[in-house]
Design a protein around this nucleic acid. Structure first.
Lengths: 336, 336
DNA sequence: TTGAAAGCGCTAACAT
DNA sequence: ATGTTAGCGCTTTCAA
């Protein structure tokens, strides 16, 4: 299947007996072209099924009009929704989406960033697994803006970010748990070197402190946001001689794992142990027990990230970093 | 944040006192370059943090090394997995992914295809909502291959496809239902003008016929693959004076809706009515009841689609169309 | 209002 | 083994 010859500006120009630049102007609707010739040109364009070569245009204009998105796992419904939001906003503004999955792998992430650089993306939306300061600097040095989501770099205020107020979300959720009467509360945290993991842990601590409740170290386990670690952490907790009555769980996958571990022990939620979690958004509405959850506004995060990115790209001077913080959406359940 | 000057081939060449072509050859490791100068060049490349401009390269080589993917809804875990598979295979082969969401909208799909054309993608993986024969022809005429997944065009054998054997999957699933003792069986089908919807319906018919069971038209409802239609169809069925004892449901969202409708009526699955479905793959393992399901091998479909695409792109002559058919994966449940 | 021509950054003949 | 040069298809000064 050899590439057939495609019609280009030059062909149209020759056919019509005008110059390429005139055809170009007519098509892009810029510069002055007489009504008459414009119509003649546009007609020929349609007739010939002319398709502009956007890579040539990108090269010439030094702008590929594309947004790179790197997430750790597109299969995670949170990220899928983020992408959906970004794609939808970007499309309206004429941007296309270059997608990469890092598989939670720092090397893959660095490679993906390199790819984005080479493809000359106009901007990048990055859910980083961390430790790519070098590549991040490289983006800055060539002037390609990055908007961070989910896990954000530690040097706050330096970067554009669109996130949930994780600390407060956790504080609220733990507060609700306490107000329900639970006193002996544990937590399965995410990695404490990732912002979302750490902030949710801090929110939990804040709520406990505010209510004068002690935090028992053996009731706090650090997971890695994956299902397996949720299972393991919950098993550890259930194996203690003295168990917490309720556990806060830092993300969806760990929550599923933890709930399964509880069931596997023959215990019941919330009778034996109560749980609440983050992002256990349930499209099926059939997960049982329905897990009380603070859901991030995923699609909105995607939209806003694209919006911040695009406005950053068209920003003339040095604007201060934008740190957008979206409200989580609480959804009650019968898991507590 | 103005674009800073980036270093290009010419800069490197001047710094090193060699020609651009030599630098190019050294970098792409093609053509002869003396060991010595190559090392000097590669060293300078590293030092200067040189990043090749891939859009220039794409223009020159007339190949963007990118795969377009258009799906109807990236938020559907089936498509998310397809994308993951395609991305992962493509990355290994040096291809990047240009993603578009059509939102099950024919117009958006056509626009996305136009975008892919303009971006000069090397090939396209398409989960079509249908009726874009014109655009499909346009791809063919410029020689950009398409691999169809999920919903495939009616003119069989004409196109490369990677699909599940939907007809047989449905036949098997219905057969299992029958063997469990159910006789009065209904179905909530997908759109019958989409291949996956139609084929699953045909498989159901085949199984019923093979076992000498009648198909009662009022027990068969055509949905649109969305949750709402699952609810509505199941409500209709439950409202009949005589209900089926079991219902086959053509996809995941409709199944969730249908199960919710059953519950809303105060009825129990499978005691009052049994169900089995497609693609109700459950990462949480907490959906209750666990729905017996034929899951498509989504990630593999993505990988294979990318593989077929890439081999098609490098195929010299006219190879016959590839129609890859993958086996579904049955997962039992307690919904029947 | 239109055309001629330069050039975006790179690769690949072709020449040396 | 290296350099020269001609484009890839487009946009955009600049001139007419």
């Amino acid at each position: 299947m050899g590439r057939t010859k495609t019609v280009k500006l030059k062909d149209l120009a020759m056919d019509l007996g005008v110059s390429v630049s005139t055809v170009s102007r007519a098509i892009s609707n810029s510069g002055r072209v007489s009504r008459e010739t414009r119509e003649r040109i546009l007609c020929a364009v349609r007739e010939a099924n002319y398709t502009p070569n956007d890579v040539a245009r990108s090269l010439r204009k030094q702008n590929a009009m594309s947004i790179g998105i790197i997430v750790t796992d597109i299969t995670n419904s949170f990220f899928a929704s983020v992408i959906k939001g970004a794609q939808s906003y970007g499309r309206d503004k004429g941007y296309s989406i270059l997608l990469s999955n890092s598989d939670e792998n720092e090397l893959f992430e660095a490679e993906a960033m390199q790819l984005m650089l080479e493809k000359q993306v106009s901007g990048l939306i990055l859910a980083s697994v961390g430790n790519n300061a070098g590549k991040i600097r490289q983006f800055r040095s060539v002037g390609i803006p990055i908007v961070f989501i989910d896990n954000i770099p530690s040097s706050q205020g330096q970067y554009d970010t669109v996130t949930t107020d994780n600390r407060n979300a956790a504080r609220l959720l733990a507060g609700m748990m306490i107000r329900k009467g639970y006193r002996n509360i544990g937590m399965i945290t995410g990695p404490l070197n990732q912002s979302s993991g750490r902030q949710r842990y801090e929110g939990f601590l804040a709520a406990m402190t505010e209510h004068g409740l002690p935090v028992r170290p053996e009731w706090v386990r650090e997971g890695d946001f994956k299902m397996e670690s949720g299972i393991r952490c919950m098993e550890d907790i259930l194996g203690l001689s003295e168990c917490p009555r309720a556990v806060l769980i830092s993300n969806n996958y760990m929550a599923y794992g933890a709930v399964r571990a509880v069931k596997a022990e023959g215990k019941t939620i919330p009778k034996d142990i109560a749980v609440a979690a983050f992002d256990t958004d349930d499209v099926t509405a059939l997960v049982s027990p329905a897990i009380a959850t603070m859901n991030q506004a995923a699609e909105e995060i995607g939209e806003k990230a694209a919006e911040v990115l695009i406005s950053r790209m068209s920003a003339a001077g040095m604007k201060p970093a934008v740190n957008l913080i979206l409200e989580p959406v609480f959804r009650d359940g019968d898991s507590w």
